[in-house]
Design a protein around this nucleic acid. Structure first.
Length: 562
RNA sequence: GCGCCCAUAGCUCAGGGGAUAGAGCAGCUGCCUUCUAAGCAGCUGGCCGCAGGUCCGAAUCCUGCUGGGCGCACCA
């Protein structure tokens, strides 16, 4: 079944062509007030402006030409205000739509905008031997939702966890372990990663007093890059302890990956990149380091090799994307879900990648999330000023269990995820427990609760042997409510969220739908609805389906009982 | 100093150049003997940071300013 938007767009194009206004680009949107119909267009106003005509008169002509044909879709077409054309959809359309949702089930809302394309979504990307903090949690949650949205929109999605398992930090880690650590104690430790992080914090404290420690750390990283066995051994140990910890967290969060190519995977692929940069004359030496300079100083210089010969984040990212294009094709879409503070870095990176001929800028996307901070400042691993994710998850589940212990996990994790997804991701978030684990109002549990409520009604209906009816004939007197209007809009909301890499649109929508359904539920008896019970059950099942599809897109569970 | 982002109700936020700017939280009033009260209905609460500009029409686009966040050569 074609959506109302598609049908209306076609109808409008035809009517505009008759008035010789074919080239007009108009908007077709949902007015804020019901009195203005289900869709409104400014087409007549735009066209009138171009042709220097009276907008109201032109609107009249357009409406006449639309009404020459009978459209099952439309109940009424009106001209309003300065020349808006308002469309009122028919009851039949809405009822058919609700039936369609039932038929399409978990496919309702899917689109083909990414058909035939591969998208790599890089997210989470925690660092080895560092805490998996609520900062990484943002990337994990938002990235997971974006991967799901793209997949639902037809892309063939590869979820990539680009582990921070390479870099100067390992030099620091090795120095700290050699100076103050004890490998036996580490192995016996209850939380080995925490043991490593404490050493890392100590390193930064000591390095303030003794700057030569930084030099030692850089030297150890150079040895690591050169394949020194002792450096490699300690590095491998750090990786193993961390990976074990991450696996537990991802399982609890229900997040999975198709690949975990850490930065170390690209260790032997960076020489070619540096060679290409030099061959194409893109990189120049300056003060011993190798840098890319941009024309007109569009961006600050971009370093690709340090003066001690070691690589950087940038070198590894270039090698990564070169590898991706070689492996998954020239037109692969690459999305990085990484903190917004790295925006400049990504602009530089994309520019360099384009100059190297790896990708076009249109296939590189940085979704930057805002910073998560305490009321009094930024979190910093180096200073030990951070909250561990294990503690957050435990607290979330515990708070949720005070309502219903049986679904504490689904609800606690859901609350946490929804709180991160409900606002535009680029905004900074102040960490406040009562917000993070909010269970009321615009929250994850509210959506989940509404879903449980709807499924419960459907179960009760079965017990009472009431059945869903898809017949329209006997339902002349049913009223079309906000619920039907919202159900109709789900596919376009999903499409917008996917094209803008903005899961918060799905949250806003689900909250609206849940609110509309709860209001409907309060004053439309469903099970004792008489002749209308069949239709109301159909509507309820459609609401349940859409809530479930939406929750799934956000990586949240849809519990049937709460 | 230069660059990027942000500013909407007491607080947290939606708002796709359009019509009377919307939610949640907090506060106040009602509603559980009836399909799940993690809920529903209602009230209170706005120079959409300031000043210009473009437009038939600006919270939305442009310019300037103020305030805040972030970034800018050997971290990632």
């Amino acid at each position: 079944m074609k959506s109302a938007r598609d049908q209306l767009t076609a109808i409008l194009h035809e009517a505009l062509a008759k008035q010789e206004c074919d080239l007009v680009s108009f908007t077709l949107e949902h007015p804020t007030q019901h009195a203005h119909g289900d869709f409104a267009t400014n087409a007549a106003m735009i066209a009138a402006q171009q042709k220097n005509q009276n907008p109201h008169e032109l609107a009249t002509k357009i409406v006449h030409s639309i009404l020459e044909k009978k459209h099952e879709l439309l109940d009424k077409v009106e001209i309003a205000g300065p020349g808006f054309i308002n469309f009122f959809l028919s009851k039949k359309y809405f009822v058919d739509r609700v039936s369609t949702i039932r038929k399409e089930g978990e496919s309702y809302g899917k689109s083909h905008i990414g058909k035939g394309r591969t998208a790599i979504v890089e997210f989470s990307s925690p660092n080895i031997a560092k805490p998996f903090t609520i900062g990484h949690l943002r990337s994990t949650i938002i990235g997971d939702a974006i991967a799901r949205l793209l997949s639902f929109s037809g892309y063939s999605v590869l979820r990539d966890n680009h582990l921070g398992d390479w870099g100067t930090q390992f030099g620091k880690q090795i120095v700290a372990l050699k100076l103050w650590g004890d490998e036996d104690a580490l192995a016996k430790s209850e939380n080995p990663v925490k043991y490593l992080v404490d050493l890392y914090v100590k390193f930064h404290a000591e390095a303030e007093k003794d700057p030569t420690l930084e030099d030692q750390a850089r030297a150890w990283f150079v040895r690591l890059e050169q394949g020194d066995p002792e450096a490699k051994r300690i590095w491998k140990m750090c990786v193993d302890w961390s990976m074990a910890q991450f696996a537990k967290l991802y399982e609890l969060l229900h997040v999975s990956f198709d690949m975990m190519l850490g930065e170390s995977f690209f260790e032997d692929k960076m020489g070619e990149v540096l060679q290409e940069l030099q061959n194409k004359g893109l990189a120049k030496e300056s003060e011993g380091a190798l840098l890319v300079f941009f024309e007109n100083e569009k961006y600050p210089p971009f370093m690709v090799r340090k003066k001690d010969g070691a690589t950087l984040y940038s070198t590894r990212d270039l090698a990564t994307d070169r590898y991706r294009v070689q492996t998954w094709g020239k037109d692969v879409l690459i999305v990085n879900e990484v903190g917004a503070e790295q925006t400049l870095y990504f602009r530089q990176l994309f520019e360099v990648e384009e100059k190297l001929g790896y990708v076009k800028k249109s296939q590189r996307v940085h979704v930057g999330h805002g910073m998560l901070r305490f009321k009094d400042g930024k979190m910093s691993t180096r200073k030990g000023n951070t909250i561990w994710l294990e503690d957050v998850l435990q607290e979330a589940i515990q708070r949720a269990s005070s309502f219903n212990p049986k679904v504490a996990k689904e609800v606690g994790i859901g609350a946490l995820k929804y709180n991160d997804l409900k606002r535009e991701s680029s905004k900074d978030v102040v960490f406040v427990w009562d917000d993070v684990l909010n269970l009321k109002g615009n929250s994850g549990p509210y959506i989940q609760y509404t879903y449980a409520r709807a499924t419960s009604v459907l179960k009760k209906a079965k017990e009472k042997e009431l059945s869903i009816s898809e017949k329209y004939d006997r339902l002349q007197d049913l009223e079309i409510t906000q619920v039907e209007h919202l159900l109709e809009q789900f596919p376009e909301v999903v499409e917008r969220a996917a094209t803008e890499y903005a899961p918060h649109h799905v949250c806003t929508y689900l909250f609206d739908l849940a609110q509309a359904f709860n209001a409907y539920y309060a004053d439309h008896p469903i099970l004792s609805g008489g002749d209308l019970a069949g239709y109301r059950l159909l509507l309820t099942s459609a609401v349940a389906q859409v809530l479930k599809n939406g929750l799934t897109l956000l990586g949240m569970q849809a519990p049937e009982v709460m």
